[in-house]
Structures are given as structure tokens and as C-alpha cells.
Nucleic acid binder design. Structure first.
Length: 800
RNA sequence: GCUCGUAUGGCGAAAUUGGUAGACGCGAUAGACUCAAAAUCUAUUUUCCUUUAAAGAAGUCUCGGUUCAAGUCCGAGUACGAGCACCA
């Protein structure tokens, strides 16, 4: 068969018939299947895309045949750096490059026969779409969820641009290789940390895979501890520290502040070595986040001479240090150091000769010559009212004490920070605010949305790191919507994550120009039932999307707090050498080439067969040929079809229907293919098969190889397309043979196998098993202690 | 360092969730068809002993445990991979 021609024929027929268009008014039960929309890069489609699209396509096709109203949409996440880079280089508007890339991607996806509902397609860069992204940002702003704050960003002094953490990995600029420094800039922020607890709780309303839930939990990073107040001797100042181990307070011999801690300025007249402190502050500032965390293993710090803290539990003096191993961004930016029981504090204390007091031990005795921090839980010592208590008891008692004396309280901290929502880039959604000298920040009125990106040809950032938009004075200068006076537009744009944080809502009602989606559509489609994407997006993207949706829910705009029910992730397709596919390694497989040579169905079938869907898999063209052979075999079987009715073998057919139905819904695509191979192999051994036999195979295979199965269905004279037929049902009672073969073990070792009737009486099975010659041999001269019969499974005879 | 995965033939992998380990596919070997090749079909293919078969022994990263029975459960460890990373 000429596969390419056949595939085109069916793709055209499906598209023209609108078979995959989901309806917003249907009596059928809805089912929303979503696969992450791609960034349409210039590289074209990757065979990895084919894997996840095919997998969900197969599921969607089965669900439709099972009678669901399936929403399976596709679109484009097209804002972001690569398109902007391309534009800078070639002096064309990024939207042009995006348009071309989308065309390529779409053509490639269509050549695979994926059953996306193209009538709902959009790109995050469409003004009709980003109008609503901007509108939603204004909702954040109106509800006090967006604010401006000074933040350190990764800054390349050579390129004069701000870099993401990814683009500055290793502490050098990805583009020019120069050293990245920290630069303070005013940035728009979203109060995501306010939602930390709610994002944690909400996980209970989802059915994400455990590892994905864990990823979210770790990212949110909840920690339960206490804030403890240390007075600074002979001043009115206090220092509040955050600790998860307030029970070790008697062992706190010094404190460490983040170098930029504000108390330092307040105490500067008291600090005798202020020069040294200033020097250290500068040194810390110049270090990038990378160096602070990875390169410099050895702890450094400077003691604040002339100021002393007071340990609130025993009134003893504690030294105050600054050190860059303490971060301003977490807790209170200050810690109490307990060198005996914390590795980092121990190292610091050793280096600077600070006293070490042990307050926990295994046996209630002090350890001589502690050579490293004792971090196991034990019994408290040297701790007055805590002596003899274990960790939990001691923490509770200490919290009680701190509370009674107004010295501290229980405190929950989260690693999750507010979302830095500004980018100094051209190719993103403009933040729809203007700044007026008189009125301050003023939202652009809804009627003036979207704030469009201007049509220019220069996209280089400015020398001081402002967005390229800042240079376009026509665009920047505007009037204040409130007072009508002179005003300037915000020139920062939104991060790439913005558009993808709510796109799943837009699919429900993509052409609505009155609102981002009608309440009816939002209610009808509800949650995404099944969301698939890459492992790399299971923390941040998913968290942003959940946060965004929870916020919209809280202000009454969407019906569900959680947007997604089930989230799964697929493994990568690696090159045949087990490495990530890349041009430089020469191991890239272009799906177009495979489609041209072997057909889309073969590629689809192979990628489903390649292995465990959630794990990485290496490409093998040899194995791909095996799938081609299988499809050829299915084709040849059509010549065996006789004019009889019914199934040649009820059991194998029912068994296969059961397995394929279950496996398709449980991401076990590889065994879907193998069980169909077994069925085809069985048919091949038959003299002839019935049309019913053949139709079952075609229907079950259709979700994975839709083109060839439709063609064969037509060739044997069906007037209806497979995709219009109901999904095959199975009869549980017919999934097991009447006669089965089970193993017989003696002392757990297999000695024989016997044929018995299904559900045969245990005593009878015992009898048959005992009669086996080889079983007898192993029973000879032994005493039978007991015999275990597991129905339809195994017999085990225990002897002595 | 912490958290989470993973480990099964020459290779990709299955295993009804504690019940005959290696289904299915690739590769390989032998044969059929063919002038020949391709395609297709048939047989064999975990290892060891054995001419073969029957029969046997070993075998799912390592060591130990629970059980009539362990790839599957428990404990300790090794290797590889992923994420987070001085989070107090």
C-alpha cells in the first residue's frame, strides 16, 4: 500500500468532516484530554513530541468510540527568547518567525494524523489571546496580588541584559561567556507565597502521579519551626531568627546574619569593624547565586565587633557574625547557630574558634572531642529544663517557654517565594499599566486592551537593561487614563510562563471576545481530566497554572479551585546512542523522514511500543521496522477473511479487548501493541478468520494506527468509519480458557505442569498434581506436610 | 548533602500486583521459497552439565530477612539517572 497517499486521504476526510471537533453542547459525558502545547521552535517537531501526542491521541480516539464528548485541543506557546533572538539577528518581527514555525509544526503534526480539534487552535502571541492574559494580570493587580519590588537579577555586564537562572548557569552568561553579577532592579511580583498552603492542600483534590505531587511539595518547601527573639546587648534592637530546632537553643553560641541584613545599618555606629563588614558585603554581592551555593564550599564570614546578642533562654552572650551562607530570602535572614548539631555551623565554629556546646546525645553523656556535628535525635543534655527529654517533647516545652516569656513563637516557613513576573524583553505580553507622576501606577482600561506590541525592527535591549520597548518613545509615552496627564507605559513584559498558566481554560471557549471563556463553557468542561507533559514542567509550570487558577477561583471567575485532575509525564526519546538528541551529536531523527519512508502509522505504533511510557527510551530504527512488519501482517490478514460470523476463538478476543481497553487508559501503550501482535499472530495461524475477528483487531488497533485500519475497514466493505463505531466490549467470563495449564511445585520448586479445568475443585487438582510422574519422584520417601492450591494458578506441595 | 526514581537475556522490554520469570519485538543461527536477492514463512535463541531429549543445577544489581512461595514485601548496601540544593 502507498501509505503516504492513504494517510493524506484519511486526514483530509477527518478534517473536512469535522470529526474531532468537540461540542460545547452535548448530551454525552465530557472528557478533557490535554497535552502540553509546544514552543514552535525553528528546529521543527521532535520525535519526542510524536510520543506524547500519539499516546494521548490513542486515548482520545478510544474515549470517543466509548461515547464521550472529548476535548483534545492544541495550540502554541510562542512568546519567549528564541523567537526574540532570531528577530534580533534577522531584523524581522518575531511574529513573522513564529508564524512560519507554527506552519511547519502544524503540518508535521497533521501528517501524523493526531485527532486534535484544530477549530480551537490559538497561539499565546495572538492579540485576541494575550488580551485576556493582560486582563487577568489586571485582576491580580486589582486584588493587591501584584506589586513592584527591588530584586536582584542575574546581570550580564557585557550583553547588558538580565538573564534567567537557566541562561546564567555556571555563573557565566550563556550568550557571551562573561561573568554574571547580581544587579538590583524593580520588578513586578505576584504574591504566590500567599498561596503556599493552599497549593499544598489543593494537591489532595488532584490525582497527580505521586512523584509529581512530591515535586510540588518539595518546591513549596513547607517547614515548621519557630521564630526566636535575641536582644542585642546595650541597645534597643532585637534580632529575630528562624529555626526548626528551637529545642537546641541552649547550644546556640553565635548568630549569623545574611550580609545584607538591615539590622547592620542600624547598628553601624556600634560596630567597631565597619570597614571590614562593608568589604565583606561587597564581596558577597559580587558573587552570583551560583558561586554562593556551589563553587565556594568553605564558609566565610565576619564577626561584628562591639555588638553582642543575648541568648534568651540563659542570658549568655552570643557572638554576632555575618556570613553568606545565610540567605536574606528565607526565614528572617538570620539564624542562631548551634555548632554541635548542625554541619554548617560546626564548620563555621571550627574555622573561627567559636565555642561548641553539646545539647543532645545518644546516651545522656557528653561526647568527648566531637569531630563533627551530632545530627541524630537523642536526649537533651546541658539544657536545664529540657534535660532528659527527646526532640519532640523538648520542642513543645521550649515553644511553651518562649511563648510565656514573649521571646518567640511557632512559625511556618515556605521555600516558595513570590513570582518575579517582569522580564526586560520585547517578545512577551506587555504589562498593561501606565505610570503617571500624579496618580502613580494606573491600569490600562479594559476597553483599551490588548496593549499591543509595537511593530518595529530593533529588538536589542537598552544599555541599562530596560526592555527594548523603553526605546520606542511613541509607544512608551501616553496619557494617564485617570487624570489625562502625561504618563509612561510599563515597558517590562510578562514571563514565558504567563501564557501557559491559563491556556487550558481558553480552549474551552477559544473564540469568545467578551470574556476569557464563558461561565457556561468553564462549568461544562470543568477540570482537565488528563494532562500530559514533560517531567521538566511538573514543578514550575504546573505550580504556576494551579496558582493562577486558584486565584481566578477565589475571585469567582472559574468554578474549580484545582484546574487539573490527573497529571502524568512522559519519558524522553533519546538518540540511538542513549544520549539526548542534538544536532552536534548527529543523532537526531526527523519524524518527517520516518513518516515518508515508513508511514505515520508505523512511527506511531513504534513509539507506543518503544517501552515504558514514563521512562526515557532510545531510538532504534531496527525496532521500528518490526512495527512496520506487524502492520504489513495486519494488512495481509484481510485476505483470510471468510464469510462466517462470530469469533474463531472467544477467549483470545475477549482477553485482548480487556487488555487493550485497560492498558490504553493506564499508559501501558507498549503492551497494547504487544497484545495486538499476539492476536494478529493467532489469526495468521488460522486457516481463515471471520469478519468479526478482523474487525475487532482493526478497532482495537485504530487508536494507534488510525489510517491503515480505516483503509482496511473500507477495503473489506464497511460503509461506516471505525471512528464512528462503538468500542468493542468484552465478556469477563470469556477471558479465561475452559482448560488451563498450571504449575506444580514441590517445596517451591517447579517440578511439573498440569492441565486442569477452569475453577477445578481443589481436591481434584491436588489429585492430578500428585499423579504426575516427576512430582512423585520428588515426593519419594518424604513426608507431605501440606499442599497449597491457588485457584487457576499453582499447586505447591510442602514435604520434609 | 537532601529528596525521588531505576536496576530482569546479546538489545528494547513483559510479568494478572506475592503464585510456572523472560510474553511481545529487535538482533542472531539454521531451514523453506527463489537462478539470485529482497520480502515472507518455519524452527532455535537466559546460563551451565549433557551428542540430543528427558531429567537436573543456577538465575531478575549485592548481602541478609519474612513466606508454602519473592523480580514483586522488609532491612542494609552498590551503581546509574532525575530534581532541589548552605532552607537554618
Amino acid at each position: 500500500m502507498e501509505m503516504n497517499k492513504i494517510e493524506k486521504k484519511w486526514q483530509k476526510r477527518w478534517e473536512e468532516g469535522g470529526y474531532f471537533h468537540a461540542s460545547n453542547n452535548s448530551d454525552k459525558e465530557k472528557y478533557y484530554i490535554l497535552v502540553e502545547f509546544p514552543y514552535p521552535s525553528g528546529q521543527g517537531l521532535h520525535v519526542g513530541h510524536v510520543r506524547s501526542y500519539t499516546a494521548l491521541d490513542a486515548y482520545a480516539r478510544m474515549k470517543r468510540m466509548q461515547g464521550y464528548n472529548v476535548l483534545f485541543p492544541m495550540g502554541w506557546d510562542a512568546f519567549g527568547a528564541p523567537a526574540e533572538q532570531y528577530a534580533i539577528k534577522n531584523h524581522i518581527h518575531p511574529s513573522k518567525a513564529v508564524e512560519e514555525n507554527i506552519k511547519t509544526f502544524k503540518g508535521q503534526i497533521q501528517s501524523l494524523g493526531i485527532s486534535f480539534d484544530w477549530s480551537r487552535e490559538f497561539s499565546t502571541t495572538d492579540p485576541e489571546y494575550y488580551k485576556w492574559t493582560q486582563w487577568q494580570f489586571l485582576k491580580f493587580y486589582e486584588h493587591g496580588m501584584a506589586y513592584k519590588a527591588k530584586k536582584d537579577i542575574n546581570w550580564c555586564p557585557n550583553c547588558k541584559i538580565g538573564l534567567s537562572n537557566e541562561d546564567s548557569s555556571g555563573g557565566v552568561c550563556e550568550r557571551c561567556g562573561s561573568k554574571v553579577v547580581q544587579k538590583e532592579k524593580e520588578q513586578w511580583m505576584l504574591r504566590m507565597s500567599d498561596y503556599a498552603e493552599s497549593l499544598l492542600d489543593g494537591l489532595n483534590d488532584t490525582h497527580f502521579a505521586d512523584k509529581i505531587k512530591l515535586g510540588q511539595i518539595n518546591w513549596i518547601g513547607k517547614s515548621i519551626g519557630a521564630e526566636v527573639l535575641f536582644k542585642v546587648k546595650d541597645t534597643e534592637e532585637d534580632i529575630v531568627v528562624y529555626t526548626t530546632r528551637c529545642d537546641t537553643l541552649f547550644g546556640a553560641t553565635f548568630m549569623v546574619l545574611a550580609p545584607e541584613h538591615p539590622i547592620i545599618e542600624k547598628l553601624k555606629d556600634k560596630i567597631q569593624n565597619m570597614d571590614e563588614v562593608r568589604k565583606y558585603q561587597t564581596y558577597a554581592k559580587e558573587k552570583t547565586t551560583f558561586e554562593r551555593t556551589e563553587l565556594v564550599k568553605e564558609k566565610t564570614g565576619v564577626k561584628l565587633e562591639g555588638v553582642v546578642g543575648i541568648n534568651p533562654v540563659n542570658g549568655k552572650d552570643v557572638e554576632i557574625w555575618i556570613g553568606d551562607y545565610v540567605m536574606m530570602g528565607y526565614g528572617t535572614g538570620a539564624i542562631m547557630a548551634v555548632p554541635a548539631h548542625d554541619d554548617r555551623d560546626f564548620e563555621f565554629a571550627k574555622k573561627y574558634n567559636i565555642p561548641i556546646i553539646q545539647v543532645i546525645s545518644k546516651d545522656g553523656k557528653e561526647t568527648l572531642n566531637l569531630d563533627k556535628a551530632y545530627t541524630e535525635d537523642g536526649i537533651h543534655i546541658n539544657s536545664e529544663f529540657l534535660d532528659g527529654l527527646n526532640k519532640e517533647e523538648a520542642i513543645n516545652k521550649m515553644l511553651e517557654f518562649l511563648g510565656e516569656n514573649n521571646l518567640g513563637k511557632k512559625k511556618v516557613n515556605y521555600r516558595l517565594q513570590d513570582w518575579v513576573f517582569s522580564r526586560q524583553r520585547f517578545w512577551g505580553e506587555p504589562i498593561p499599566l501606565v505610570h503617571c507622576d500624579k496618580c502613580g501606577w494606573v491600569p490600562v482600561p479594559e476597553s483599551e486592551l490588548p496593549v499591543l506590541l509595537p511593530d518595529v525592527t530593533e529588538y536589542e535591549p537598552t544599555d541599562d537593561g530596560e526592555s527594548p520597548l523603553a526605546k520606542i518613545s511613541d509607544w512608551v509615552n501616553t496619557t494617564c487614563p485617570k487624570c489625562g496627564g502625561k504618563a509612561r507605559r510599563e515597558t517590562d513584559t510578562m514571563p514565558n510562563w504567563a501564557g501557559s498558566s491559563w491556556y487550558f481554560l481558553r480552549y474551552m471557549d477559544p473564540h469568545n471576545d467578551k470574556c476569557f471563556a464563558s461561565p457556561e463553557a468553564l462549568k461544562y468542561w470543568g477540570k482537565v481530566d488528563w494532562y500530559n507533559g514533560g517531567m521538566e514542567h511538573t514543578t514550575r509550570h504546573l505550580l504556576y497554572a494551579r496558582f493562577w487558577n486558584q486565584f481566578l477561583h477565589n475571585i469567582g471567575l472559574v468554578p474549580n479551585s484545582e484546574p487539573i485532575d490527573i497529571r502524568v509525564s512522559h519519558g524522553m526519546i533519546l538518540g540511538s546512542n542513549n544520549e539526548k538528541m542534538s544536532k552536534s551529536k548527529g543523532n537526531v531523527i526527523n519524524p518527517d523522514d520516518i513518516v515518508n519512508e515508513y508511514g505515520a502509522d508505523t512511527l506511531r505504533c513504534y513509539e507506543m511500543f518503544i517501552g515504558d511510557y514514563e521512562k526515557d527510551a532510545s531510538w532504534s530504527t531496527e525496532s521500528l521496522r518490526g512495527c512496520k512488519r506487524f502492520l504489513d501482517k495486519v494488512e495481509r490478514l484481510k485476505d483470510k477473511v471468510n464469510n462466517k460470523d462470530g469469533y474463531t476463538d472467544e477467549v483470545i478476543v475477549n482477553k485482548t479487548i480487556k487488555k487493550v481497553t485497560y492498558d490504553l487508559a493506564n499508559m501501558k501503550y507498549n503492551t497494547v501493541v504487544s497484545s495486538l501482535m499476539i492476536l494478529a499472530g493467532f489469526y495468521e495461524k488460522c486457516e481463515s478468520i471471520t469478519k468479526d475477528d478482523y474487525m475487532v483487531l482493526l478497532k482495537l488497533l485504530n487508536p494507534i494506527a488510525p489510517h491503515i485500519t480505516e483503509e482496511l475497514n473500507e477495503m473489506i466493505g464497511s460503509s461506516q468509519m471505525i471512528l464512528e463505531m462503538p468500542w468493542p466490549e468484552y465478556d469477563e467470563a470469556k477471558t479465561i480458557d475452559d482448560e488451563i495449564e498450571i504449575g506444580v511445585q514441590v517445596n517451591g520448586k517447579l517440578r511439573s505442569s498440569i492441565k486442569i479445568k477452569k475453577d477445578e475443585d481443589d481436591e481434584k487438582v491436588k489429585e492430578i498434581a500428585m499423579a504426575e510422574e516427576n512430582v512423585q519422584k520428588h515426593l519419594e520417601g518424604k513426608e507431605i506436610i501440606k499442599t497449597i492450591v491457588i485457584k487457576n494458578r499453582i499447586v505447591n506441595i510442602v514435604v520434609k
